[in-house]
Write a protein that binds this DNA or RNA. Structure first.
Lengths: 252, 252
DNA sequence: GAAAACTCCATACGCCGTAGAGTATTGTCC
DNA sequence: GGACAATACTCTACGGCGTATGGAGTTTTC
């Protein structure tokens, strides 16, 4: 239930992310690498959510006290910055082929799956973009998907942003639905069955006839209050249709 | 930096949200109403962020101890459920006029502004939809914007979801940019000036030529790393274009 | 008036991020 | 090889968090 946002000192984060090291070191050898710390932290967040990701927890899984982590990372915020870049780095970036639409669709699906694989990702709010190596690589890759099809550089940026924004918005619903299923241990059907009569006692179908009929029909069709994956498929097709309007108008 | 998600016991939340009261009460009169508590909590979250919203803080602003809040609300999670419904209730729902596109555009802009007015809203993850009276009213209102234009009930739901999802995704960026400005006290220009040389030392423009040129051009044009409002305008137009393709195909 | 129901408070527990000081280990220089 | 400085890690502690528990005081019902 409790969740975090990243964004520590950007300068320090940058150094961490790009692995800038200072001088030969004099004291005892560090017991781990930053990678070890990051890997452990990601495993915790994946398994038990961002709320479970505490310095003490990471440290204890590494067999060490909480304070010793502060030799690797200036604070928890920078650690989270590192985590984000690391998981973004797990997205495969195969050579582009197909037309722009196929490319953007593949990117959208990859983003979608990334968010589902790391449900905590969308809960990290990066107040300023943390430009880690993997995020930069992905930005470049995404841009190249729409290069050379008549868009200005600015439009390329806007297009890539649009796709990413939509996927993030849609993925939130999927992530939350999945988490609800896990946390409460009830399936969508069970929850709906338990909840519906309660809602009936309170919801005035005559006052909101449209919501009543659409909600009921959607609920029956989805077998739940919503079907995030179906919504994603529908929305993605519309977004790409909308981009097609723009891109085809440039073709002339 | 620390942030919360809502979703307590749905049954209890529902009762709270719809103001179901039990029996005449026997003991001393409560000092406040749930509205008082909610209003105070919203003020705190608006002013200082969701991280600053603690039971102790709300209580102390009401001149009371933290534990006394638990007479009004079973836990913090349910309180947040209430807050969400309350702020959704501040969105104006004027009689629909214009065509579907004008209606959806107005809805999108209203959602956008709601998120900017209450920057914590997008950080609350509603694991299951919390169907408060205001959320239901808005769902009905949004659906009516696309009623009678040839869409099936399911499609109406999907369309409304698409618009909401996109706006949420885009608004996140705007909210985070605004928060970064506040928290760090630096303008976008200042931050960019300070950050750019650092990034140059690390970023290999030859390896990522597309990102380099597009990023530079966009940065110059925006006067910042991004321009969330411009991105929103661009994306919204595309989304509506995409919906037009669908809707016009139904007209026949 | 007695008893029940209720509001609110005081205390406490186990978490959290992290500041500060101390200890042990390692590399560098004479 | 020995002294010294830098480093990795530990221990302790502080002020925060959500909230369980139990008790004090107030109001309504019988």
């Amino acid at each position: 239930m409790t969740v975090y946002g990243g964004s520590g000192d950007p300068k320090r984060s940058l150094e961490l992310l790009w692995g800038i090291q200072d001088k030969p070191r004099r004291g005892p050898k560090p017991r781990f690498t930053i990678d070890d710390v990051a890997r452990t932290a990601i495993a915790i967040a994946d398994a038990d959510g961002l709320a479970a990701l505490s310095m003490r927890r990471v440290a204890s899984e590494l067999g060490v006290t909480a304070m010793s982590l502060y030799g690797y990372v200036p604070s928890k915020a920078e650690l989270i910055d590192v985590l984000v870049d690391r998981v973004v780095g797990t997205v495969e970036l195969p050579e582009h082929d197909g037309d722009w639409r196929a490319r953007l669709e593949r990117i959208a699906r990859a983003n979608w799956e990334l968010s589902l694989r790391h449900p905590w990702l969308l809960q990290v709010s990066a107040s300023r973009p943390v430009l880690g190596p993997n995020i930069v690589a992905k930005y470049d890759y995404d841009l190249r998907a729409v290069d050379g099809i008549g868009l200005s550089h600015l439009e390329m940026d806007l297009v890539v942003t649009l796709v990413a924004d939509y996927v993030n918005g849609a993925a939130r619903n999927a992530v939350e639905a999945a988490q609800a299923r896990e946390q409460t241990g009830t399936t969508d059907d069970q929850w709906w069955e338990e909840f519906a009569p309660l809602l009936d006692t309170v919801f005035d179908a005559e006052r909101y006839p449209t919501a009543a009929v659409v909600g009921a029909e959607a609920g029956a069709e989805y077998g739940a209050a919503s079907d995030p994956e179906r919504a994603f498929e529908f929305g993605l097709a519309r977004v790409l249709d909308g981009l097609a309007v723009l891109i085809e108008s440039k073709r002339d």
